[in-house]
Design a protein around this nucleic acid. Sequence first.
DNA 1: CGGGGTGCAT
DNA 2: ATGCACC
Length: 705
Amino acid sequence: MNNSEDELDEDETEWKSSFVDPAAPAPSAAAASGPDIRRTHRVVVHFDLDCFYAQVEMIRNPALRQVPLGIQQKNIIVTCNYVARQQGVTKLMYVTDAQERCPELVLVRGEDLTHYREMSYKVTELLASYCPLVERLGFDENFMDVTEMVEKKLAQTGESDGFSFEGHVYNHTSADVLTGDHPRLALGSHIAAELRETIHSKLGLTGCAGIATNKLLAKLVSGTFKPNQQTTLLPENVSDVMGCLSSLRKVPGVGHQTAKRLQALGLVSVKDLQLFALSDLVGEFGASTAQRLKNLALGVDDSPVTCTGAPQSLSDEDSFKKMTSPQEALEKIQQLLSSLVERMHKDGRQPQTFRLTIRRYSATNKWFSRESRQCPIPNHVGQKITSGSSEDAVVQLVVLAKKLFHKMVDRSAAFHLTLINVCFSNLQSRGAAVSGKGSITSFFSQSTSPRRTQTCSSQSQDDSSQRGAGPRLDHQVSTHSMNTQPTTSISSRSKAALHGFRWKQSSVVAVEETQTASCSTAGTRHTTTHRPPPSVDPEVFKLLPEDIQKELLSPAYSDSLSSTSTSSSVADAPHIPINKSPQPFTDLDVQKTATRSDSSDTATTVNPQQPPGTSAIPEEHITEKKRPSFPLSSDCEFPGNVDPEVFSELPPDVQRELMSEWKQQKPMLKIPSSMKPGRSSTSKDRKAAGRGRQANSLFKYFKPS
DNA sequence: CGGGGTGCAT
DNA sequence: ATGCACC
């Protein structure tokens, strides 16, 4: 299903040939340093935050930094800090085992993902502000295609300069010189280092990074040196990395089922798969999957870094040991819906589809297999969600849920559920349907006008008036500063705007490839300029809804994470909730709903109602915000006629719509990977026309450092 | 084996 | 519209 057939066989072609077809001629990548190099040498970074949930909890309550900390969900430790790891606690360990290993282990409940989710998006947004090509993988990982940034830098500095690598280089020692051979990866390592530093200074989070020529490899190497370090993989060491994997299961993309099927074919190690005849693999998996699997084993991964954008669905779930009555179920559903509706409301979009999922207990198949039923959400119900009539909305949704529930669960028969999930999907932006041809785009026709100079938000000076808006991320740290306790909380729409890096929305508006042309012309005409104050185009600003205008001007616009609890909060003291001595069963907050059949009893649970205000970010994090020493400029991927600053301040749904137009690039032709390793350059056919990356690549805005 | 997510196959 | 596989 690699859609990007046109630009397939990018990447890796060179050394791939050494694997697959030693005779294959090297691609003409060497020619010039034109766009060709861009196809053959991507630079992809994989960011992976260290023990993410634990870090978030330690930010919320710094006292936890010095104790072994485990994040508990139900009966397992989903992650833990490094103090705990030293004592033998590991991820996905049962709570009881963990406590055996580490009696002092402090536990924080992590079932409520709210804080993690918020921090997670801050990280993604921060990254995306420097280069929009960011793809989320779960809450704590991000891929970033920094090829353009690298090329820009390369163009500035010239290739001849001796580059050194930042951080580790896989299978090389620091004594190794290896500088000049891989200037792009070297630059990638610098970018990665600076982005990690930025994440640390602005958000207080540490993490690892892997730098390589594709996603697979970047992910594989990112964890080579574990906490808070980074590793670059050079093409000549690809086989080392792949060879080091202890089993096929370790290959990202090979899950449990696939590994089992491969094993049935006698394939266990990566090398087994590398050497296995493709044709035999096709028999079991089909051509497409077979080729992909084999490629993975070789370290080949053509899949592009795809902008993740705003979530396409919001869901909320709870698992439990036992639920047997419809009563319980409906109460649980209602409870889940209440919080989900709130989240949905804050998002600002209107869900068109509701889905209810259950998991039944069964001896065989013990854990797994879910069943779901979904239905459309009547418009008037959807509107209640977005408009904030949550109670009403929940009531109506419960009615829907009940019907769905009974499509799966027979009233008159006994049942035993272990999980319920509610999900909104088909999220539709306000006004998405309304946009006639030009209506939305007209927002920009003005800024397209003659003087649309500069695009990159400057990173220094110029602040004053337009604080906080746009891609300037200064707001990110607000976790602790709790500045501006706004009397007016940020409206949902602006909150959504903070997530405004989307792009992936399906759009009603159809825009043809014409942009490509317009883009390319625009791209050439722009030149590096200094910035006039990065103010919003007044013409555009006037067109914004008034409330949005206000919020954009308000300093309160910045605060998103702590906005909820920050208001009073400071009242309840930061009682360091560390109970070294196991609190015997003090489950104070008794749920009347008694549905808590799950255990969690014994644990020395900590419940951090910690006021975010007190000491969110430890001093070390408050250090001088080091400006990236080279231009990690924001916004590089907008079509040439769009001012990113202006863009960033549009209502989120408008942004979405525009982005989805621009993104178009969703390739229609999905020639399954009929592509063969050797095929390579026969593909003159890469029309590339609609491809976003290609289009985007025309719009690099330089910023003199 | 948590709580979410995504994308594919059917 | 559902289930599956994967992270």
